[in-house]
């Protein structure tokens, strides 16, 4: 799970993104127990306080919850996970289209491109 962090962006935000991605991709399943803060810090090679901060953020948006004395778990609310997945996909798609527009392709051309690429695979 070790990751390379971009020092230009707050580390905790990158952790939030990474864990979010792991949850919506199912790499960490719904209802699964997360490793302890200390273990996560070890795996990710970052400061435990940074991990703590990221987990608080994920808890705020409902993707994880704390069960007293038992640790932290991924939400069992699949609809919520799905919602974040959709949001995430939308964000990437928007960004992709924006980049394509920058190099002079309109939405229809982009669509054709994706279709073509899909056919090739």
């Amino acid at each position: 799970m070790k990751s390379d962090f971009d020092n230009n962006i707050p580390i905790y935000l990158q952790l939030v993104e990474q864990l979010k991605r792991d949850i919506i991709s199912g790499k960490i399943s719904a209802g699964e127990r997360l490793h302890s803060v200390r273990d996560l810090a070890l795996e990710l090679k970052v400061n435990p306080n940074t991990v703590q901060k990221a987990l608080v953020e994920l808890e705020d948006i409902g993707l994880i919850f704390t069960e007293r004395t038992n640790g932290k778990f991924v939400t069992e609310d699949n609809a919520l996970i799905e919602k974040y997945k959709q949001e995430y996909a939308d964000k990437i798609t928007e960004k992709y289209i924006e980049t394509m527009q920058k190099i002079g392709l309109d939405k229809n051309e982009v669509l054709l491109l994706i279709k073509d690429l899909g056919g090739n695979k």
């Binding site: 707050p10 580390i11 905790y12 935000l13 090679k45 970052v46 400061n47 940074t50 901060k53």
Partner: peptide, 27 residues
């Protein structure tokens, strides 16, 4: 070292120039 730091203290010419939380400063 910066990825493991909570806080940073900048020191120059014998004086503390800045103290901040690392992620806050990046932001």
């Amino acid at each position: 070292v910066e990825r493991i730091l909570d806080n940073v203290i900048f020191i120059d010419k014998g004086q503390i120039i800045l103290t901040a939380e690392a992620d806050e400063l990046r932001n």
